[in-house]
Computed example of a mutant assay.
Amino acid sequence: MHALYFSSLFLLSFLNIFAGKGDAEKAETLFVFGDSYADTGNHDPYNETLNQPWRKPYGLTWPGYPAGRFSSGKIQSDFWADILGLPSPISYEQLKNHGCGPNFKKIRQGVSFAVGGSAIFQAYGFPTVSQQVKQFKKLIAASPGFDSDKLSRSIVLISAAGNDYGALSNRRNGSTEGLEAAVKPVVSGIIKVVKDLYECGLRNFVVSDIAALGCAPEIGKKSCDSKYNRIIKLHSRLLTESLQHLRLHLKEISIIIPDMVSATNYIFSHHAQYGLVDLFVPCCAVKGGIRHCGEVDEKGKALFEVCDNVDEKFFWDFAHPTHRAWYALMSLYAYGDNTRGFSFIQGASNAIEWLHSLGFLAFNISLRTAD
């Protein structure tokens, strides 16, 4: 059944890609903002307190070594680039370390400003999404060739998966009490980011909804925790309403919202079909615990263990999906579930059709780990 499902998915995706191609062209550039669900390497690899995604065993599945991503392989930024037929977006940190000149071609195809731990407000001390927008403006001003036409034919990915709520909950010893009061300011901050980028000339936005906060790994856990449900529902409703307001009032703007909660719940409900086991047990963790993937002692001995079935795991570490899980999520965004008629994108039937509606080519994504 597992093989049959993905054979059918490939056929449907193949048909989607080549239907109505016409005079479509590739999108120009992918710009990425947000948190660890979109970070392609913006933690300093030389800072031992912050370089977790640059340590082994991160990158185990792809590219085979640590590449600055909080996963065993590709994350959504990489898969969105695959859909667009573009290379994975270069990290802003790499540009700072090596300069823009040698990387000019890469800049023109995609840049990720997202950094793990980021949020709308100062959740964990990392650059906020608004500060990332300032970095974008600085980079664009210093890089020739980004005229209004190029920017209007680019794609923006924004991931604010929930660090604001997680940080507040941590400060309250895991309680969700009072978190609802934070939802409106957080959503307003996301809307401000979209408007700021729109004023820069960008027009096409993928604004990811909140993550399934109650589904994070936990020892002994058998199902997703419902304590975040009110926060998730309120956040999703306000985000949808606010982005619809922008659609109605900002000329030529196009916005889709990947519904990560629905996609995660769908995968969990059909986990056997996806070949996934032990949904709430991460592949990489300290023995008997959840955190500390990549940690070593003073002698360099690993304090963590890595599972031998990473392709059967949804979570890589304490909060982040594996390469396999990101592929499953992105497949639902890209194609939906045509056999059941389900869509996991608000604002379009699926990502492929959205790109076609904009006049862009869209390409198949693959579980294979090669570029």
Rank of each mutant, 00 (worst) to 15 (best):
Val111Leu: 01
Ser112Val: 08
Ser112His: 01
Phe113Asp: 10
Val115Cys: 14
Gly116Leu: 00
Gly117Val: 10
Gly117Thr: 05
Ser118Lys: 12
Ser118Met: 08
Ile120Val: 14
Gln122Trp: 06
Gln122Val: 07
Ala123Thr: 00
Ala123Glu: 05
Tyr124Glu: 08
Gly125Asp: 04
Gly125Pro: 01
Phe126Asp: 02
Pro127His: 00
Pro127Gln: 02
Pro127Cys: 04
Val129Arg: 05
Phe136Gly: 09
Ile140Arg: 15
Ala141Thr: 15
Ala141Gln: 15
Ala142Lys: 15
Ala142Thr: 12
Ser143Arg: 04
Ser143Met: 14
Phe146Ala: 02
Asp147Thr: 00
Asp147Ser: 10
Lys150Ala: 14
Lys150Met: 14
Ser152Ala: 15
Ser152Met: 07
Ser152Cys: 02
Ser154Asp: 03
Val156Asn: 13
Val156Arg: 08
Val156Asp: 11
Leu157Arg: 04
Ala161Pro: 07
Ala161Phe: 13
Gly162Ser: 11
Asn163His: 06
Gly166Thr: 08
Ala167Trp: 04
Leu168Arg: 10
Leu168Ser: 10
Ser169Asn: 00
Arg171Trp: 09
Arg172Pro: 06
Arg172Glu: 12
Arg172Ile: 02
Asn173Thr: 01
Asn173Lys: 03
Gly174Arg: 00
Ser175Lys: 08
Ser175Asp: 06
Thr176Asn: 09
Thr176Leu: 01
Gly178Arg: 09
Leu179Lys: 06
Leu179His: 01
Leu179Ile: 13
Glu180Cys: 05
Glu180Asp: 13
Glu180Ile: 15
Glu180Leu: 15
Ala181Asp: 13
Ala181Lys: 15
Ala182Gly: 04
